[in-house]
């Protein structure tokens, strides 16, 4: 027998958390319930976050946007601030799962699952997101790249909850780009993905670039070397191809049921080359 609690506020949540140390937390349940059923091991207590009011908000606060951990993918996708300021995130969300999965799944669940294929993560890396972690008696903010420690492991400590994500408004990049390669179009876990933010001059010279790849390493992969190498070059096929060797050195993919390591490495480079099609164009979600 499992007991399920559904607190309405953080205060209620902390009380339950204290009382039931062995409880597991769930948000949309699209990762956790699949896992529990596969293992056929249900904990004595489950705590659902859907009613916790502090985790629902999406707010704009002086130059930044706060996304509550329980914001569903569907809600984020239909939110004007997200589409306006973070097209790279919106584009990743659009490729995530299917409509019902997006109606149920949350940003907090995607982050805490810490899958190398988590589609929310590469955009959060290039956007320099910080996650807000709360305990009963305080909170801290941690950059996303310090929060994700490995496949399935995060810096969450006992009794800590992910309360939300902070994103600085990033209006200085002229290109927001996300592309995912899966085995098919819908409901496809990434074989490899790329989130990229690039700024070019009027004449197409790269001023700054940020890249983050999904599914080509134990966590999201970034490469300062590849980013630096592109600066000063005209954004086009030749320049992008010139950084492919650096990209290939940066990634450390594995063989699995979905693809081979060699194929993933080739994809990581090719995904960058495909930016050639995107000159200076207006932001688009």
């Amino acid at each position: 027998m499992t007991t399920v609690y559904r607190p309405g506020s953080l205060d209620e949540f902390w009380d339950m958390r204290e009382k039931y140390g062995e409880a597991l937390v769930f948000a949309g349940g699209t990762d956790l319930f699949v896992k529990l059923r596969a293992l056929n091991k249900y904990p004595p207590v489950l705590i659902g976050l859907a009613g916790v009011k502090e985790l629902q908000s999406i707010e704009e606060l002086s130059g930044a946007v706060f996304i509550g951990a329980h914001a569903t993918h569907t809600r984020l996708l239909s939110h004007p601030r997200i589409r306006e300021h973070f097209p790279v995130l919106a584009s990743a969300l659009r490729s995530l799962g299917s409509p019902p999965i997006r109606n149920m799944g949350t940003i907090g669940g995607n982050i805490c699952t810490a899958s190398p294929a988590g589609d929310v993560l590469p955009p959060l890396y290039v956007l320099g997101a910080q996650v807000e972690l709360r305990k009963k008696d305080g909170s801290r903010r941690v950059p996303i790249r310090e929060f994700i420690l490995g496949p399935g492991t995060t810096a969450l400590t006992d009794g800590e909850l992910l309360s939300g994500v902070w994103l600085k408004k990033e209006d200085s990049f002229t290109i927001h780009h996300f592309e995912k390669v899966g085995q098919r179009k819908a409901l496809a876990i990434a074989v490899a993905s790329l989130a990229a933010l690039v700024t070019t001059t009027e004449t197409g010279i790269v001023e700054k670039a940020r890249f983050a790849w999904g599914s080509v390493g134990p966590t999201v992969v970034t490469s300062q070397d590849a980013e630096d190498a592109l600066v000063g070059l005209p954004l086009g096929l030749k320049a992008l191809q010139s950084i492919v060797p650096i990209v290939e050195r940066s990634v450390s993919p594995i063989d699995d049921v979905r693809a081979s390591a060699a194929y993933r490495k080739a994809l990581a480079g090719n995904l960058v080359v495909r930016l050639a099609g995107r000159g200076r164009e207006p932001l688009r979600a």
Partner: peptide, 26 residues
Amino acid sequence: GTGECGACTILVNSESRLACLMVAAQ
């Protein structure tokens, strides 16, 4: 039974949900 096929789609408060990935308490 794992969220991939949609055969169990229902509406909860007018939004689609997968009944195989929900628990009764919800």
